[in-house]
Design a protein around this nucleic acid. Structure first.
Lengths: 276, 276
DNA sequence: TGAATATTGTTATATTATGTGAATTAATTG
DNA sequence: CAATTAATTCACATAATATAACAATATTCA
């Protein structure tokens, strides 16, 4: 038979794919599938756990925020179920986003599960963070990061600060980069389904030197209630699939740089060019 | 026969799923379902009970006590841990606190697990809430309550808003009641171990018509870093045990009303006098 | 190419999970 | 209230899985 040996990244992809499909993978399962030793698979599990892409248990690996993954310590509030669905894409997008940040910058983090994925990876970096999202602020605050929030009303299923007071507070800040989460992308701009949150996002965009939209491809072509911004205010879009042609053309015409994150999991051992 | 053995995490998921569906699961039920020994299921029950995801009785497991730990949702570890410890007392204290509130009031909620217990019981009531605590704001916001927060820096293991900006924001509000959590009670006042949080608490006290301190008896006689307030500004103390004599005398001399919550679980089916 | 480095495989040694039956505790009933 | 039954805990044996250390192999880069 064809003795198929895979590379580390291929194995890890297979692990994550199986995991997403079945919700649980065992060491012997994958070892046989990849025709490799169990030790290697265990090391892969370790690696992926380090990145937060799975949780290890005795004998198996499971999705990181399923209830039984919370052994003793880490009771993390999961944003919601749909966050783990595109987890890999979000992780890849967050990785690229991370590389846009430089030490000692002040960055703004908007609402959304993809932005949350970035927040998770930001922990411990020497930057200042401003966020309207309660889960993000809480997560980073607990990790000891420097986080600031605007005042205002709390709203939404991923609770965030909205309202006139929040916008007023926001106007007193200035950010090096804003990372914006959106729920739709059409030919005339980025959209979101909450009017209140849209107002905040728009205000955030105006206070930033650079604006980077993070979104996964499921949102291409979707028009929601309210427009956040025209393309001209957005400097970069990070996603994991090339947008379809009409959108791509509009984006490029407006000068939006587009980064496509590959969801292949690699070591990333090398230092980033940005000094982290 | 296809006798498939499940992994621990799968069994625990099945337990929780059955529990949610039926409200009650027995050991033999699950043991047969999982084709495993009863001992193993008992150990699973222990494990899940530890996390507050179920409650054990003789012969079965049922949904956990109404307060806290509902699902794998909103509660962060440090908070959760402490909350589970004196859960009974906190629940009782929160119950008394609830009776101090009247419809359509504006109340301020400070930081702390006892105050969190109150927040949990407040859900759905027709009041406006102001809070500096991120977990509380998130919890209530997600439940659809009207919540407002001050802007400022995020800090602490139960993250909350602190700093000059927060105090400035706070000064623009006025509350019917503030519920304050403290970490110490000595003869000259209430104490807390975070200087930043103390400043916020003090400011909160000044903006309220009535100030109610919530604390459990473990904090009697403990002096922490910084004083929040003298007794004279505090109208009421709700706890679950009578304070020792020197403290009691000081409190009474300053006109602080003292409510002792009985941690005996009563029916509480009757309407409260305050209209809820 | 060859040295340096990283990855993988193998073994022996912990650690953890599970199953069994006796001892203990809690509920039930006459 | 004792006697009975059911449920639980305890202690230990066994099996499954994880870890650590080292050897072997592959990969990278000068």
């Amino acid at each position: 038979m064809s003795s198929k040996k895979f590379h580390a990244s291929q194995r890890r992809d297979m692990i994550l794919t199986s995991l997403e499909r079945d919700g649980l993978v065992t060491v012997p399962m994958i070892a046989k599938l990849c025709d490799t030793s169990e030790m290697t698979i265990r090391r892969d599990f370790d690696f992926l756990e380090e990145l937060g892409l799975l949780a290890r248990t005795h004998g198996a690996a499971i999705l990181p925020d399923s209830p039984s993954a919370k052994k003793f310590d880490t009771i993390e509030p999961s944003l919601d179920r749909r966050a783990i669905l595109n987890q890999r894409a979000k992780f890849a997008i967050a990785t690229l986003a991370l590389q846009q940040i430089e030490p000692n910058q002040t960055i703004a983090l908007d609402v959304g599960s993809t932005v949350f994925a970035l927040a998770e990876r930001i922990k411990g970096l020497p930057i200042r963070v401003f966020s309207t999202s309660l889960p993000i602020a809480r997560h980073l605050g607990q990790a000891g990061a420097k986080v600031y929030m605007p005042g205002g009303a709390v709203q939404g299923s991923e609770p965030s600060i909205v309202g006139a007071k929040a916008i007023e507070d926001l106007r007193r800040f200035h950010f090096d980069i804003s990372f914006i989460g959106v729920s739709g992308l059409a030919e005339d701009g980025f959209y979101d389904y909450s009017i209140e949150e849209t107002e905040i996002k728009s205000a955030m965009v105006l206070q930033s030197k650079r604006n980077i939209v993070l979104m996964d491809s499921s949102k291409f072509g979707r028009v929601s209630v309210a427009r956040i911004s025209e393309f001209s205010n957005i400097n970069m879009l990070i996603t994991e699939q090339t947008p379809p042609d009409p959108l791509l053309k509009s984006l490029k015409a407006a000068g939006v740089e587009i980064l496509i994150a590959s969801s292949v999991v690699t070591k990333m051992k090398k230092e980033f060019s940005n000094g982290f």
